[in-house]
Each structure stands twice: as structure tokens, then as C-alpha cells.
């Protein structure tokens, strides 16, 4: 029970940090808005048109997107790690993230703006390839697949370099210049995918004992693998459509969650999601604050949050690899 209690406390503290992050995001920016003005906008009592646009169209959606995409990436990380049986796996290292990014980049270049559909097609394609190629060693297959898909993306960018700056934000991951429209595309997924992921916890717990043991317990391993991978891929694709292929959130958040609450996926899924949410929105606050005085900070060209998560996540990856090798 102590682990359950700890998980509940962790989710609650993450929630309060999230509230703090929302407040910070609403107050920090180049246009000076006082706390009073922000509260007036949020309670619908403001007649200051510019303040309403800044808060409701830009600042609030941006922080909500960060929280939501972070939660989905972390969750996807937990699911992918269960499928490939490797704690180093995450959307970015299994080809799923590269697939989604490739989908978005290709669609952008062809002039389609159906970002979600493009990310889903790319990620599901990569997930299918992972299932087909990765029977023996899915973790290795994922890394190779990710490299190949990233190379294809790079090739596309060489062939046509015109949309580079808008495309870069999908590749690195950025919440710059996201608006209310992006949030309204994300929230329906956010309302459903975490529940789906949590319902899969018993299967993932059984798999963790090894394939023979899972079969022996009556878990239909083949079908459940596909189901879990599909949920993981959809979550990653949606998060990437919202925030770009942010690396390391899907690695760091589950890793910290595992250290704190152990390996029971019933706790791991919600705790990872909560940590991923504050990790991405927090990193975005750093990215935004660092880049605020740089030219184009309001623009897509500002400091991308993916750069911050990469700096934060790289040491964790090094630590994990060293632990694996020991």
C-alpha cells in the first residue's frame, strides 16, 4: 500500500507543480500583463481585448499543450518499454517518433496541413515495421528503424530546403507559436488515451515476467502486444503532432517514475504521465525564458523545448546505458 500512497502523493504534487507552471506561463512573456489582468481574463471579466488574445489564444494553450504532450510522451514511453522489454526504449528511439516526424515533414512539404493524420500515418507505419522487423530483438530494430526514418527525413530536407524553419520544430520539438487551435486538436486524445493506457497495465505487468510466463498466465501475448503498441504509437503521434518529436521525455519520466513507485504499471502509467507533463511544460518555460530576448522568440524560430529536454535527458540516458552495461 505504501507504493500506492506514494504514487497518489506524487500525482498530487505534480498537479500542484503543474498549476504553478500554468501561472508562470501566463505571467511570463514580452507583453507585460499583471496577475490581476490575467485573472480577469480567465474569469471572463476582462474587456482588454489584447490581453484576452495573449492569454487565451497563446499563453494558456501553450502551457496546456506542453503538459498534455509531455504526459502522452511519457505514457507512450512506458508502453513502448513494455513492448520491447527495454527501459532505454521510448518513442524517439524506436522509430515511432521518427516515423511521426517524417509523416509531418513529408505532408508539410507536399502542402498538406493535416498534421495529426500525417503524424499518425507515419507513426503507425513505423510501428508496423517495428512489429515485423523486431521479432528477435525489438530494441535494436527500433534504433535502426529510427535511424533509417530520420535519414529519409534528412534526405527530404536536402531535396527541398525551403520550409526548413517550420519543419525544424517538428524534428526537434517546439511549442513556440502554438495557439488555441492546436489545443482544441489535442484535448480529445488527452481525455481518452491515458485511460486506455491504464487499462493495459495488467498485461504489461504479466509480460514483465517473460513471454513464457505471460502465456502460462493466460495472457494472449500476440494480440495484447499489438494493442499496447497501437496505443503507444497513437499517443506518441498525437504528442508529436502537438509539440514535435521532443526527445527524452518518454525516457526520463518513466525512469524516474520506476525509481519512485516500482514496476507495477497500474502506478507507473499515471505517475509517468504526471512527471512527463511537468517535465515538458517546465522545460518549455526554460526554453521560453531563455529565448525571450532573442529575435523571433514569439516565432517558430525561438529556442525549441526539444533542445532543453535533450540537455536534461542526455545525462539520464548516459546513466541508464551505464547501468545496463554493468
Amino acid at each position: 500500500m505504501s507504493r500506492l500512497l506514494r504514487a497518489v502523493l506524487l500525482v498530487l504534487s505534480a498537479a500542484s507543480v503543474a498549476v504553478g507552471l500554468v501561472a508562470a506561463h501566463l505571467l511570463v512573456g514580452r507583453s507585460e500583463l499583471s496577475a490581476g489582468e490575467v485573472v480577469e481574463v480567465l474569469t471572463g471579466r476582462s474587456d482588454h481585448g489584447a490581453a484576452r488574445v495573449i492569454v487565451l489564444r497563446y499563453r494558456l494553450p501553450r502551457v496546456l499543450l506542453g503538459l498534455g504532450a509531455g504526459a502522452l510522451l511519457a505514457m507512450s514511453g512506458v508502453l513502448v518499454q513494455a513492448v520491447v522489454r527495454n527501459p532505454l526504449a521510448e518513442p524517439a528511439t524506436t522509430g515511432v517518433g521518427s516515423g511521426a516526424a517524417l509523416g509531418v515533414v513529408a505532408a508539410t512539404m507536399l502542402g498538406f496541413h493535416a498534421t495529426y493524420a500525417a503524424a499518425l500515418v507515419g507513426a503507425l507505419g513505423a510501428g508496423l515495421l517495428l512489429l515485423l522487423l523486431g521479432r528477435r530483438s525489438p530494441a535494436v530494430a527500433g534504433i535502426l528503424l529510427g535511424a533509417v526514418l530520420a535519414a529519409v527525413t534528412a534526405l527530404l530536407l536536402v531535396v527541398d530546403s525551403s520550409p526548413t524553419s517550420s519543419v525544424m520544430r517538428w524534428l526537434v520539438g517546439s511549442l513556440n507559436a502554438r495557439t488555441a487551435g492546436d489545443w482544441s486538436a489535442l484535448w480529445p486524445w488527452l481525455a481518452t488515451l491515458p485511460v486506455a493506457a491504464w487499462l493495459l497495465a495488467p498485461w504489461m505487468n504479466a509480460w514483465a515476467l517473460g513471454a513464457a510466463q505471460a502465456i502460462s498466465l493466460g495472457v494472449p501475448v500476440r494480440t495484447t502486444r499489438v494493442v499496447v503498441l497501437v496505443v503507444a504509437v497513437v499517443a506518441a503521434a498525437v504528442a508529436i503532432a502537438a509539440a514535435g518529436a521532443v526527445a527524452f521525455v518518454g525516457l526520463v519520466a518513466p525512469h524516474v517514475a520506476r525509481l519512485l513507485v516500482g514496476s507495477d504499471h497500474r502506478l507507473l502509467v499515471p505517475v509517468s504521465a504526471a512527471l512527463g507533463a511537468v517535465l515538458l511544460a517546465g522545460s518549455d518555460l526554460i526554453a521560453f525564458s531563455v529565448g525571450i530576448d532573442l529575435p523571433g522568440a514569439r516565432d517558430v524560430a525561438g529556442v525549441p523545448v526539444g533542445a532543453v529536454t535533450a540537455l536534461l535527458g542526455a545525462p539520464v540516458l548516459v546513466h541508464l546505458v551505464r547501468k545496463e552495461l554493468r
Binding site: 527501459p87 495488467p202 505487468n205 504479466a206 514483465a208 515476467l209 517473460g210 513464457a212 510466463q213 498466465l217 493466460g218 495472457v219 520506476r258 525509481l259 516500482g262 514496476s263 507495477d264
Partner: peptide, 20 residues
């Protein structure tokens, strides 16, 4: 060749036997 999930306690592992 059963595997122990990292961090799982004895009770958590034995509890998996209740799945069926």
C-alpha cells in the same frame, strides 16, 4: 527462465499468479 521486473516486490510478483 522467469524474469523479475526491476523493483517488483515478492508480493507483487506472486500476485501476478491471480491473473487467470
Amino acid at each position: 527462465s522467469a524474469l523479475a521486473p526491476p523493483g517488483a516486490t515478492v508480493t507483487e510478483v506472486v500476485d501476478q499468479g491471480r491473473y487467470p
